[in-house]
Nucleic acid binder design. Structure first.
Lengths: 139, 139
DNA sequence: TTGTTAATGCGAATAATTCGCAAATGTCAA
DNA sequence: TTGACATTTGCGAATTATTCGCATTAACAA
């Protein structure tokens, strides 16, 4: 009953990490979890406010940071825009930025992840995470 | 004789792009071209100053931006640190960040680039550029 | 050589993010 | 249940990378 759309029980994850389950965190996580785009802090702040006007921008920032460390959230740094966030996807994926429109497209599949694992292994490393960003234009 | 270590004649590239060849740009490009790490603006500014004290930080920023648009320089945005730069490599490569030490390792080879091209094509796009960052730890 | 226009240095401005602090609140042990 | 206490919060101020405005300088085409 605490499970998000992605199947994660965030309350459990927070507690397991020794973190507290606060209403602000719950609200922010709900909003991020329901977003189908990749919101930045401003987006998150505004949408969360509509649901719970006790949250401040600072808390959105702090929550993103906390959730990222807990492995629940992925931070996307693209171009020079403010950071965007997404719930850590169960099926990993990468991103393609349409350079004309600025649209962000998700690249499905495991092919990229597999290659990354192989490449890292060849260099004597084990992957913690990887992220590919392709900038492209429609053909 | 104007060719950099990577074989590019930057004066020609600048002129072809309708840009002027200024001493400040020359100094900055020399420094960046000789760097074997991936300097940020502060690094570049300090090293360039030792060679040419007419450059200002603003010009380093502007030069990086200009060179990036001209396709001579690649900007690396990793984590939350200030942007780093490298001369556009003739043999494309990606990067691996050692999460323990913060070291930045270059991943050689064309395998990644090839996969990216294929993946983009499947989505109906042609690649402008791509960049993969792997965060990993030594095994 | 000269006129045009891009490029520069300087310092101020901006924008995203972080911080300091006092008040509030989740959690755990009794 | 209650209390104690460390975490978390809101607020606004501080920080920091980067950009801008503007007057001056200098590249380069004619």
């Amino acid at each position: 009953m605490n499970a998000l759309k992605n199947g994660l029980d965030y309350k459990q994850v927070l507690r397991d990490a020794g973190l507290r389950v606060t209403p602000q965190r719950a609200s922010i996580i709900t909003i991020l979890s329901e977003a189908d785009d990749h919101p930045n802090v401003e987006d998150l702040y505004e949408k969360t406010r509509a649901l719970d006007d006790t949250v401040s921008v600072a808390t959105v920032y702090r929550t993103m940071s906390v959730l990222e460390n807990a492995g629940l959230v992925r931070k996307l740094m693209l171009d020079d825009a403010p950071a965007r966030y997404e719930m850590m996807p169960q099926t990993d994926h990468d991103h393609l930025v349409d350079v004309e429109s600025g649209d962000l497209v998700e690249i499905p599949g495991t092919e990229i992840a597999e290659l990354m694992g192989r490449v890292a292994a060849e260099l004597g490393y084990e992957i913690v995470s990887h992220h590919t960003v392709i900038r492209a234009r429609k053909t």
